[in-house]
Simulated scan of single mutants.
Amino acid sequence: MNETKKKATFLAELLEVPMATAMVFAEMIADIPYARILEFGRFIVEGYEPKKSKMLVVKESVVNYRRLAREHAIKSGSMLFESREEMIRWVEKHYRGKELVSGPKPYKKFVVIGVGEDGRLVNRYALDDFGRFKPLDHESAMAVYAWLFANQHRIGSVEHIAAKELPMMEAKALAGNGAAVKIDKRVARMIGGAYARVDKI
Rank of each mutant, 00 (worst) to 15 (best):
I191L: 13
R36M: 12
V63C: 01
K75P: 00
Q152A: 07
S61V: 03
A35T: 15
F81A: 01
V45G: 04
Y145S: 00
A171E: 04
V101W: 00
V158W: 04
D31K: 13
M19P: 04
G192Y: 15
S102Y: 03
L38H: 14
A173H: 14
I155W: 00
A12I: 02
F40W: 11
P18M: 03
K200L: 12
E86M: 13
R67C: 05
H72P: 03
L121F: 14
Y145K: 09
R66C: 04
E99K: 12
G114S: 06
E86L: 12
G116W: 01
Q152L: 06
V91D: 00
G103Q: 02
K109R: 12
D128L: 10
V91G: 01
M1D: 07
F130E: 11
F43C: 04
V112L: 07
Y195F: 07
A146M: 03
V158P: 08
W90L: 05
A188T: 12
P104D: 02
F133V: 04
R42P: 05
D137Q: 09
L68I: 04
A69W: 05
V17A: 03
Y95F: 15
P18W: 06
A73D: 10
S102P: 02
L11M: 08
G77C: 08
L148M: 09
A8F: 01
V144H: 00
K51A: 13
P50E: 14
E99R: 11
D199N: 13
E92Q: 15
P104A: 04
P167M: 07
E39H: 14
D118K: 13
H153Y: 11
R42I: 13
K59T: 12
D199L: 15
V101C: 01
L14R: 07
I161K: 06
R120H: 10
S140R: 08
S61R: 10
K164H: 08
E16S: 11
E82G: 15
F40Y: 05
M23D: 08
M55N: 13
V158G: 05
I155N: 00
I191V: 12
L38M: 10
K109D: 04
S78T: 15
R124T: 07
N2Y: 13
W90N: 03
L11T: 11
L68A: 11
I161N: 04
P106I: 00
E92H: 10
R186E: 10
S102V: 01
F133H: 15
K134N: 00
F25K: 02
F149P: 09
Y145C: 01
K5Q: 12
L174S: 09
S78I: 09
A180T: 13
F110A: 03
G156P: 09
